[in-house]
């Protein structure tokens, strides 16, 4: 069970805003985390607390394929991202590196910035502790559930190569 305060953004938040290209000369997770969301919300890294949750509109993570984006979000201490929809490469990258993400348009409409929410990743249940309302996210397809259970794509690949 995840619990945290909400930071809310609109539609089409792109990976240039999540981690600007000027910081792509490193792969260091902490360094990337220190610049998370810098070009959409320069105050984000000062406001965010471990466990906080990002809630956003349509097409979150669009643009570049940079895995630095979900890495920066995870390294900034964010426990989960809830959006109406995700751009497809960001979606893959998040699953692959183990950043929990949930698609739930109703929850996005029913949650405000600053609300305290609770997320059950096993069931996809999202509860807004501030208002008392709760929402059901779309479940992951079984194959992706398998990847998540294996602990991400690298562990999955390790199992496969180990068996060869």
């Amino acid at each position: 069970m995840i619990k945290g305060k909400v930071h809310k953004y609109g539609d089409n938040v792109n990976t240039d805003e999540i981690i600007p290209a000027r910081y792509l000369n490193t792969t260091d997770h902490e360094e990337l985390g220190a610049h998370c969301m810098e070009d959409i919300d320069a105050e984000f890294v000062n406001k965010v607390r471990p466990g906080d949750i990002i809630v956003a509109g349509l097409n979150f993570g669009c643009g570049s394929s940079r895995e630095h984006a979900p890495i920066a979000i995870k390294a900034a201490g964010v426990s989960c991202v809830i959006a109406k929809t995700f751009a497809r490469i960001f979606y893959r990258n998040s699953i692959n590196i183990g950043l929990p993400i949930l698609e739930c348009p109703e929850a996005v409409d029913g949650i405000n910035a600053g609300d305290e929410i609770e997320v059950d990743l096993d069931t996809g249940r999202i509860t807004n502790l501030t208002t008392g309302r709760s929402f059901q996210a779309k479940p992951f397809p079984p194959f992706m559930q398998q990847l998540i259970t294996a602990g991400g794509l690298i562990n999955y690949a390790r199992e496969v190569t180990g068996n060869r």
Partner: peptide
Amino acid sequence: VGSTDLAAAMAL
């Protein structure tokens, strides 16, 4: 795709 996808693809 992403970097982790590329890593797995290079191996598998």
